[in-house]
């Protein structure tokens, strides 16, 4: 009995001592030397493994390793959940850490605008945008709608609004749906699903009439002849799909890009930001990036660093806020 209490006493003293001295080990070591990085670089992916952001992070890491672009290893840390907010909260708790980064996709910008979380992308140190994703409007292969004009005519004539599907509420898919409805003067009954796979299942099963998807979410079905795309949200036609018209050229006045990039911890030292920008610049110039990432996922190549990236994020935030306000989903 005595011995047991002895163990406990030691443990309690140990704990107390630790808490008192605040031995956090969390504070970043002050940067004294000029070299960056000084230790392993951590790239947080606030989404599940295997998703779009995860694939981007792992591709970046693979290219860095193959080409020796960084002196220290890079660790990919999946912190999924809360629509990106959980991973972001983790990064938010590491202010000034020169080795902590996080991937950004547009969903992370739109989520706080509709009251689904508090952490905004603008709270972090912008590093760079490495690609832009686009939205396609997809129908089943045997759908009666051959063109956008068919769809719009049918939607105008329909008694019950046609059903469209996409991932989540107040998401990029949902915003695109609203932008198209406004531009074409139609009504589409948007049904939110839990992920791109579920959206395609319901499209192929005939439970919805049209679907919103990124190219990477629907490429298998497009190429396999199960589904067709009617239009794309870019300003110019996609290089890989020259036959696919844009909404804009068809007279539906809206364009939509999703940005994919990387941000650093809040108040990250400038030298670390610069170091990461240089690494990423080299990454996007490799052939592997162009072929295995950009082309394979049908993305638009773009590289914006520093202030340009900040401006892009702020601009997108404003556009999303306007769209969500129009949809009645904007929350302060």
């Amino acid at each position: 009995m005595v011995k047991r209490y002895f163990v406990w006493a030691i443990l309690v003293l140990f704990t107390g001592g630790l808490l008192l001295t605040g031995c956090g080990g969390q504070q970043a070591t002050p940067q004294t030397e000029t070299e960056w990085p000084q230790g392993p670089v951590e790239l947080v992916v606030p989404w599940a493994a295997g998703g779009g952001s995860d694939r981007m992070a792992r591709m970046i890491n693979d290219i860095i390793q193959k080409n020796n672009l960084m002196t220290e290893p890079m660790m990919i840390l999946n912190k999924p959940g809360g629509e990106g907010q959980i991973g972001e909260a983790y990064l938010l708790n590491k202010p000034g850490d020169p080795h902590a980064f996080c991937t950004v996709a547009s969903g992370q910008i739109s989520i706080p605008l509709s009251g689904q979380g508090d952490i905004k992308v603008t709270q972090f140190t912008p590093v760079a945008q490495v690609a832009a994703d686009v939205e396609l409007l997809v129908v089943r292969n045997d759908s009666p709608y051959e063109t956008m004009a068919d769809l719009v005519a049918a939607a105008q004539a329909a008694e019950m609004p046609l059903k469209s599907g996409g991932t989540a509420t107040a998401s990029e898919d949902h915003i695109c749906n609203a932008l198209l409805c406004r531009a074409a003067g139609i009504e589409l009954n948007y049904i939110p699903f839990s992920g791109g796979g579920e959206v395609m299942t319901n499209l192929l099963g005939g439970h919805i009439d049209v679907a919103w998807a990124n190219p990477s979410e629907c490429m298998s079905q497009l190429e396999g002849g199960l589904a067709r795309a009617l239009a794309v949200s870019t300003t110019e036609r996609l290089e890989l799909k020259p036959d696919l018209p844009t909404f804009q050229e068809l007279g539906y006045d809206f364009t939509f890009y999703q940005l994919r990039g990387i941000v650093g911890s809040p108040d990250m030292p400038a030298q670390a930001v610069q170091g990461m920008i240089e690494v990423l610049r080299q990454v996007v110039e490799t052939e592997q990036w162009q072929k295995d990432y950009i082309e394979a996922n049908m993305l638009v190549p773009i590289f914006l660093a520093g202030d340009d990236f900040t401006a892009a994020v702020i601009q997108q935030e404003q556009e999303f806020a306007e769209a969500l306000a129009m949809m009645g989903l904007y929350k302060e």
């Binding site: 443990l11 704990t15 630790l18 031995c23 956090g24 080990g25």
Partner: peptide, 10 residues
Amino acid sequence: VVAALLMPYL
């Protein structure tokens, strides 16, 4: 509980 509390520090 104590071990989980200590985990982030130790």
